[in-house]
Nucleic acid binder design. Structure first.
Lengths: 329, 329
DNA sequence: CTGAAAGCGCTAACAG
DNA sequence: CTGTTAGCGCTTTCAG
């Protein structure tokens, strides 16, 4: 149907080898020959068949992005952002991208096997057995938004600690001394980092934040609202809530309203992720912006370095976070 | 590196043709032979190489999803939902999926050319010249969330008219007689449908909704808030706002609050899309749920039908909408 | 700088 | 039911 390298060869009067070179190694073909080839190609609407190239080169330039988060997927704004960054970078570098969700690990495994991907970016809470299976098939692996110690895998993460600090120091600078944390059960890595950062930073500022100041809940608005109501029922009620993500923050705002507390006067609230909902809430939600797009781009870069056989791929890449102050604090 | 059909052939003692059949046409191989083949394959960790299959079959089973919406992408919850449905269906049917955004049409064009996709799902506001270029390369094309008359292309859309009716009749049943519409500048098709539905339905119910009851704005919270303030400044102020999507609805809520109106008592608001923000708003937003996931699935089905040479692929597939009543009305 | 030729791993007649 | 064989479109030595 489409024209092939043979058609171009015939029309331009050179061998198929030369046509091939003209496209893949232009500088190994004499200028005038090259022009002849391109002209013929133009006429015939020829462009190299990627499948045949992959076949001959024994290289697919195809990678996969696997979202390992229970129930989550591309629908999660956070992962959508990462995915978008990945897409941009794969497109730019002429790689091909396959996307899967870990909900169906067998399938994902199959994909990476049948579809001949050469590397995998694992987003979120990847199970170690997945990782080792992937590596045993000697695929290149990069972790994004996750970090596993002991394994020799490059990872790309946001500056969790720094992000938490930005939010907390902002609240402290506004005079808050009694800050509570609303934490959701997300992936162990993320939760762990944010939790640790909260404890260390409050402590460093001389605030007595202990277990009573931290409440764990499911990652839904309602669950967060309920948890926050408890937090606000303490005799010594917090004047600020540091929520570990925006959904929880929305729950906190809901709780405040139910208890007749005004935001930010009676209660300040900060979120984390800077999702699109921040601007829709009333008041608008102060949040820590995470550069998901950049994280996606960088994970592709790391993976490509791995595939290129680079010996010194940085084991950890940290993307800085940024505070976006809005009406809720 | 990986084992090939030859390895399996050798180990199992049958010809490569039989190995091939065992995998692609199991019923054309004697049970016992088949078992031998699969055993050998197991031992060798063999699985067919999709690239080589594509090469030999002259068929890639690869399709593309192209989001044609200015500035939008997978980050848009709506398109993410469609994309998710598409992914589910392509995985289920062993197709491969390539995703692009129309921001880079040249690139998208290239993709579909080099990467040998056989069909394209165009999401949103595809330009006719894109479509015809695609068709001229004789790719199968399906439109999702869009409809272009005069072209012979199957399309999959939500029941826009029905969705608008659900929202409006809900408001009317709550006693509202003065309903205004807040419309964003989205794609002509979507806007057109919702606009027409609003006019016809209000008219059918004897409400005098004219140009003064409709306000167009940019698709941002702030722009919607400003537009809504104007709407609410009329001497004969509306008691309900029908927003053409959830972002605009959030803007409307913001405007109401600024003007000291309580929701839903002084002003009812309904949205459209039923995005995840609905539950985060205060009060929660009544909205029309659109089954994006289903739309995605169905577009794949239509595309596959087209590729299979089906003569009677339905030209239009309509996915029903559903009202989700919440506190804002 | 260019051409001839040998594959890459698999499928699909065709023949048995 | 199974084996033989000729490609699929391109890359890549190896000679010239």
């Amino acid at each position: 149907m489409n024209s092939t390298i043979y058609d171009v060869s015939r029309l331009s009067g050179v061998s198929i080898a030369t046509v091939s070179r003209a496209f893949s190694n232009p500088d190994r073909v004499r200028e005038s020959t090259r022009r002849k080839v391109f002209e013929a190609a133009e006429v015939l609407h020829y462009s190299p068949n990627a499948i045949a190239q992959a076949m001959a080169r024994q290289r697919t330039d195809k990678i996969a992005f696997l979202i390992c988060k229970e129930g989550a997927s591309i629908l999660d704004e956070f992962y959508a952002g990462i995915c978008n960054g990945i897409m941009g970078e794969t497109n730019r570098t002429d790689y091909e991208l396959v996307i899967s969700t870990a909900a169906d690990w067998d399938m994902a495994a199959n994909t990476s096997k049948n579809k001949q991907v050469e590397g995998v970016i694992l987003g979120g809470n990847a199970r170690p057995d997945m990782i080792s299976e992937l590596q045993s098939r000697n695929l290149a692996v990069v972790l994004v938004n996750n970090r596993i110690s002991g394994l020799d895998i490059p990872c790309v993460v946001s500056d969790e600690y720094g992000g938490v600090r930005l939010a907390l120091e902002h609240l402290i600078s506004r005079g808050h001394q009694n800050i509570a944390m609303l934490a959701g059960r997300f992936s162990p890595y993320i939760l762990g980092e944010r939790y640790r950062a909260f404890l260390e930073i409050t402590q460093a500022h001389g605030l007595a934040a202990d277990a009573r100041h931290i409440k764990l809940c499911d990652p839904t608005v309602e669950s967060a609202a309920a948890a926050c109501q408890e937090l606000l029922s303490h005799p010594d009620r917090p004047t600020a809530i540091f929520a570990a993500n925006d959904v929880l923050a929305a729950g906190a705002m809901k709780a405040a309203r139910r208890m007749g507390l005004r935001i930010p006067d009676d209660l300040a609230v900060t979120g984390l992720d800077d999702s699109s909902a921040c601007g829709m809430l009333e008041p608008e939600l102060t949040s820590v912006h995470i550069d998901c797009h950049r994280m996606g781009e960088l994970s592709v870069a790391r993976l490509q370095a791995l595939l290129a056989g680079d010996q010194d791929v940085p084991p950890v890449t940290v993307v800085p976070a940024e505070l976006r102050v809005r009406g809720s604090s």
